[in-house]
Amino acid sequence: MPLLEVNNIDVSYGDVQVIFDLSLKVEKGEVVSIIGGNGAGKSTLLRTISGLMSTSTGSISFADQPIHNHTPEDIVTCGIIHVPEGRRLFPLMSVKDNLIVGAYNKRAKKDTLLTLKKVYELLPRLQERESQIAMTLSGGEQQMVAIGRGLMAQPHLLMLDEPSLGLAPILIKDIFETVRKIADQGTTVLMVEQDVKHSLSLSDRGYVLEHGRVVMEGKAVDLIDDPHVKEAYLGI
């Protein structure tokens, strides 16, 4: 039984349909990458899973419970945490307060301090910066805070939307290493990325999205070697 199951969903912004009959599965413990160009509907897919947008048809279920009619808050309580594109930190709050807000949901709140310790162990840089205002951090540090804030909610499934966006190559490596560590600790990860090479090399499986449809899916190692992926996304 897959942890997350998306069945034949259609999603539109007003009259403009962006996702067409899309299905996807994530098994417990997997790292799954969704790759695709700009406007392929990757972020919209994550926004739909986390309840910010609603499906017009189809269903989404998480741990066998239908969630496509839940509010974003209820979905967080179920254990799906979405780290949004562009980090979206609370700019005028300290790093520590940003992290604590991450543990707002009922399930995570009682363990706030314990989880905070774990997050600091995983991302020691954040402890050094804990009283700094989030707005003043560098891009890489902000992304670390965003991921840390997601972890504070004790996710069963962590969804990352372009964690490498706008970062220097050396920081991108850091971010992906962190993602790998999170996955190794047992959290299931669903990741949207434009950096296809890095994201596929740490994933178990991948989906390729084009124009709101899944055009290819398979093991990450197979996708990297696929001629279409190579040509369209890796530029080889």
Partner: peptide, 23 residues
């Protein structure tokens, strides 16, 4: 307080606050 932080978070970014489970 937790409620106070949640209020500040909502005042800065409603959508990000919803993604943290804040109604």
């Amino acid at each position: 307080t937790d409620m106070g932080r949640a209020i500040r978070a909502t005042s800065m970014d409603r959508e990000a606050a919803s993604l943290m489970g804040i109604n």
